[in-house]
Amino acid sequence: MDRSRSSPLGRGLVHVALLAYTALCLAPVLLVVVNSFKSRRAIFAAPLTWPDASSFDLVGYRTVLGQGVFLNYFINSMIVTVGSIAAVLLFGAMAAFALSEYRFRLNTALGLFLALGIMVPIRLGTVSILQMMVAARLVDTHLGLILIYTAQGLPVAVFILSEFMQGVSKDLKDAGRIDGLGEYTIFFRLVLPLVRPALATVAVFTMVPIWNDLWFPLIVAPGEATRTVTLGAQSFIGQFVTNWNAVLAALTLAILPVLALYLAFSRQLIRGITAGAVK
């Protein structure tokens, strides 16, 4: 066997390098979270220590939550993200089913049509999208954002899902047809449950860019009532820029839900990425 790979010294060096990079990834986030629980004096005097009894202070959180708007921002982000994911999954799965199940003349052309949306970012259409949203009175609404993110997420969703749907047993569907099931029943009752893992992967992929987007909330829904967490944190921090407690607390509040979701779904997400790439 290969000696260089199994030598304890080589292994040790690899772990040193990996741990060093782990520290580089985690330390900035940790620094913000830890300092958000400290008093202003401790933030500046000893930024690199854990909070103790004398330096522990929640004044930042009181300032942020006292504004009373952050909860609203979270609700807005939830509505927009969940709404978009639901639409992307349902519409995407339906289209993927049509493209993978039936042979028809426009099949390839439609595949190419959707591929355009994978390569060109939707942001480049912003000028026209804003005009359209103004005309349809969808500025500062959840629906406006949901429509944009649905269009953004659909092309990739259709590609991933149709690849998975090709793997669903044809015999199973034909057996359903012989038993008199309609095409819609076959789709909802037979095919959808079988591609559930793919749906989860698409959901995670779709969710991250939507939750984190700053561009469209800034342009299409900047109003206080529909502001998402990402835009809300951006404008809040801009406003409180000299109040370090509040800034650190706001950042922590924006990080924690993402962190929780990530730790819950990281296995799914990483498997999704690697599965897509191996293929």
């Binding site: 994978i118 390569m119 953004q152 990739v156 992929f205 991250v208 990425i273």
Partner: peptide, 8 residues
Amino acid sequence: MTDVDHLA
């Protein structure tokens, strides 16, 4: 929109 969009 991150790069993840363009994986396919």
